[in-house]
Write a protein that binds this DNA or RNA. Sequence first.
RNA 1: GGGCGCGUAGCUCAAGCGGAUAGAGCAUCGGAUUUCUAAUCCGAGGGUUGCAGGUUCGAGUCCUGCCGCGCCUACCA
Length: 697
Amino acid sequence: MSQHIREFVRRQYGLDLEKIVIEQPPRVDFGEYALPLAFDLAKKLRKAPRKIAEEISAGIGQIEGFAKLKVAGAGYINARVDRAALAAAILKDEKPSAEIPPGKILVEHSSINPNKAAHIGHLRNAILGDTFVRLLQFAGRQVDVQNYIDNTGVQVADVVVGFLYIEKKSRAEIEQLAKTPSFDYYCWDLYAKVSQWYDLTPDNKKARLQTLHELEQGGNETAAVAELISIAILHRHLETMDRLDIEYDFLPRESEILHLHFWDAAFEKLKAAGVLYFEDSGKNKGCWVMRRAGTAGVARAPSPANGEPSGKDDRMNPVPMAYGADIRPEPSYEQISEDDQKVIVRSNGTVGYVGKDIAFHMWKFGLLGKDFGYRRFYLYPNGHQCWISAEQGEPEHPHFGDVERTYNVIDARQSEAQNAVIEALRGLGHGEYADKLTHFSYEMVALTPRCAAELGYELSEDDKARAYIEVSGRRGFGVKADDLLDALISAAKKEVDFRHPELAASDRQNISQQIAIGALRYFMLKYTKPSVIAFDFKEALSFEGETGPYAQYGVVRATNIFRKGGLDPETFCTDVASNVSAADLSPFLTGEQSIGVSPTTNDQQPTTGVTDLWELWLSASKTAFVIDQCIATTEPAYLAKHVFQLAQQFNTFYHRYPILSEENESRKQFLLATAAVVRRELIRALGVMGIEVPPVM
RNA sequence: GGGCGCGUAGCUCAAGCGGAUAGAGCAUCGGAUUUCUAAUCCGAGGGUUGCAGGUUCGAGUCCUGCCGCGCCUACCA
């Protein structure tokens, strides 16, 4: 279509259009596509847009798959597709064969500190990440799912301090405790206690430093305790996420990045490239620092061996720095002010989190010349094997790393750290990989003051006036993931028990779980990423309106039609698809109202009878398109929106057109086909969101 | 101070690259069912898109300046 237009404009006006903008008209009776290009041309040609639009629509002739172009408004050109032909293709489930780019994609998500129970913030991360994985897989991409485990950082150290210094527990006692099912909850409370304990005496903070140091060293009693704690918590996290159908392929750990000397290798390369330099004065004296990302210029090697000219690439990835292309890339190091320095290696010689992340990303792209050892860690009930990094791995293992691209699902607060990794890659002369590291950034989940009060937290007057309050593991302030899931399941169960007392207890339990997961996953996906979610039980526990259960219910209704009609929806769909031609569908989608399906309803509101049905088919056809949009924009919320709109249109259709009582057989077949197609697309789209549909609701 | 993000209906959020009458859900009010149908549907009210300029055929969207809010800006992760 846009090809036709482009050629026509070139022929007719001698102009080359870079992009043909295609929009959706406000109402589908205008057509399926709208072209506002006449407005652009009006400026260049100094002619009225309406006149240009008429010239184009008259001159362009027939385009395959489209009816004649029409001019509307001040100069819109509207295009109608051949409805019946498109509907036949939808029914047959035909997809345009898209070329799948080669290479493996890595999605890193969750990355919960293994020192306490997972909370709602982690749920948003994991659900966004897992959904993005499913989006990529739907598009045919090969995806590795990794969950980075920071098992040597302060957060784990703090809980170790809690056990060893406050509770004075032995390793054997901790080992026993770690076997209890609520060990993650125990650590949640302990972690909050430790934070208070640090404030009691200055000596207490020394315990933290000492512990942290021992963790990084490894091979001692403290490290062994930390290992058993972090492994036990990690198991709990995997179990919690598995409740939501979220699985991982590989768990790279920070301890291996240290002990397998990933950092040492990275450090040498970073020094050699001039990304890092030694500060010998000022507040960062004795540290290895790099230029803070986004502070004028690029952390670049003095003379990049194979650095590329940064003209065209910046256009494709303009996010980090608006002025990047115009700035001299070479400020001498002495000119970097203290404020613009990012400490990578502390003066005591230990490396910070960003440094380890740089090394990790060099490994991801195969730039490090080192690899992890791999050990089997967790076998999911479905047989899927999850691997973990190890100093000495098993001889046989799958290959991770060497990926084409990586998406890091990490909340917006860490964008500076992520940018540091990106700039370090660029500074190493690997701009091509820097451009393929996407920080999949999203905002945090906070609590509404009301929610916090419900949970029994004491709030200051300031906090009460806020729109939301940030969760804080350090203060033990937040909603635990398992608690929320349990609350959702029991709320759903109450309803299921009431509606379906005839079902077996295990069935009711399963259905309740599916509904709870549907509600939770939809809730986390319906907000766009830059929106802070102000969590509130009332909204999260809702099963009505724009929720997952609303969409699930739509599918259940569609299924009910087929069940009561004695038909199987899947086989019906394929049977009809192979027997029906576009001509059969045409009267119901393009005809006048008199020959189309008339709604047999007593609604006060008149309905068009053809338009609403066509809109439903058109919406159903958009799933694959929407999924591509979600991937291109890294925004899964569009799919949630699409699912809701489709379910909403279906519910209206369901109410408006009784199907099983329809006496005209060909109408009935058409209505059944409509229900079957929408059902198929809803199940498909929900599946990509990780939401299953219960058999009954 | 600097960086990033946000400000749209009473509340929570949408609104492809600047497009046609700014849309949903919740809440409120009024209706619909002896059914494939209520975890639903139909309808009503509710808007100076934070403020002031600018760019243009056209601005919630782009630019400038204000106002308000959040996050980041640690030799934490």
